[in-house]
């Protein structure tokens, strides 16, 4: 019963919206009250959108078993599947799929796109990738000093990995970055890099001396904070990504059949902007920690 009422409402609002749009189109030549006409046009567009959304949502919820309601099911660690007898997390498989995709894309770029790049006037995709690489170079040069040549590609790889894993969420899969094992692996690499470059720059004795800098009393604390670095990096990324995923899941489950048009708009923030910011922060923090170690 309620569905029929909703259908009627949506039909009425659609009709009004279309009539308003047609009226706005026909009265375009006679531009009398400019402000009023604009207002009417905006109102009719909103009415049309609302009517369409309500119509599709009602139809979908009528014919699908999906019910709107607050119920989310998620696990802290991802589901496992068994491949050749080994039990492997799904996110690991997804991240290997990302690597494969990057391999294919990279080969295609290397073989077919890069030779076509014009050396004088970059445009389109060339501009994007050039700006990305150049920005990474500049970032690395500022904080990694002498080692920017070795570390900038790694940071670039991290950015590629995180952005691709943010894209996997758009396909309805669980992003690798929203699994603690993946982020912890990245944190471990950062921890290794911090110590490797710190020791390479100052030697083992210099690194230990640098830890006990103001007074030897702070030595345990410094050790603790150093150990906390990978944990904090991993937990930060994991928490943010999982938070975004849960919010999106909540939105979808609350809307049920009406999840048309609204989740993509919210996804612009939670699935694209938020991961990009987190990528930036992860890379910047890694660079800052390494910079601290080598300075």
């Amino acid at each position: 019963m309620t569905q029929i009422i909703l259908l009627c409402i949506s039909a009425v609002s659609l009709c009004f919206g279309f009539i308003g749009l047609a009226f706005a189109k026909s009265s375009k030549t006679a531009n009398g009250d400019d402000k009023k006409a604009k207002k009417r046009k905006r109102l009719s567009i909103a009415l049309t959108l609302f009517g369409g959304w309500l119509l599709i949502g009602t139809l979908v919820s009528m014919f699908s078993a999906k019910k709107a309601g607050l119920k989310i099911e998620f696990a802290l660690f991802s589901d496992r599947i068994s491949i050749f007898g080994f039990s492997i997390a799904k996110t690991v498989v997804i991240s290997f799929c990302i690597t494969g995709t990057v391999l294919i894309l990279g080969t295609v770029f290397r073989l077919f796109v890069f030779p076509k790049f014009s050396p004088d006037d970059p445009k389109g995709f060339q501009n994007v990738i050039e700006i990305a690489v150049e920005a990474m170079e500049n970032f690395a040069k500022n904080s990694l000093l002498d080692y920017s040549g070795q570390l900038a590609p790694y940071m670039f790889t991290l950015a590629v990995y995180m952005i691709f894993s943010a894209f996997t969420e758009l396909f309805g899969l669980r992003a690798p970055t929203s699994d603690l094992t993946s982020t912890f692996a990245m944190g471990l690499i950062t921890f290794f890099l911090i110590n490797y470059y710190g020791i390479k720059k100052k030697g083992v004795a210099g690194r230990i001396k640098g830890m006990a800098k103001p007074t030897p009393l702070v030595f345990p604390m410094k050790i603790l904070s150093d150990v906390a670095v990978p944990v904090s990096l991993a937990c930060r990324l994991f928490g943010n990504m999982l938070g975004g995923m849960i919010v999106m899941d909540l939105l979808k489950s609350v809307l049920g059949g009406y999840a048309v048009g609204i989740p993509p708009v919210a996804g612009l923030y939670f699935n694209l902007f938020h991961p990009a910011i987190q990528t930036y922060i992860f890379i910047i923090l890694s660079m800052t920690f390494i910079n601290e170690a080598i300075e």
Partner: peptide, 22 residues
């Protein structure tokens, strides 16, 4: 950039809490 970094560091406590809550 400094603000973004600081916000990330300040946010991390909330993130830890979030993880614990999870």
């Amino acid at each position: 950039s400094i603000l973004l970094l600081g916000c990330a560091l300040a946010e991390s406590t909330a993130i830890y809490a979030f993880v614990v809550a999870l």
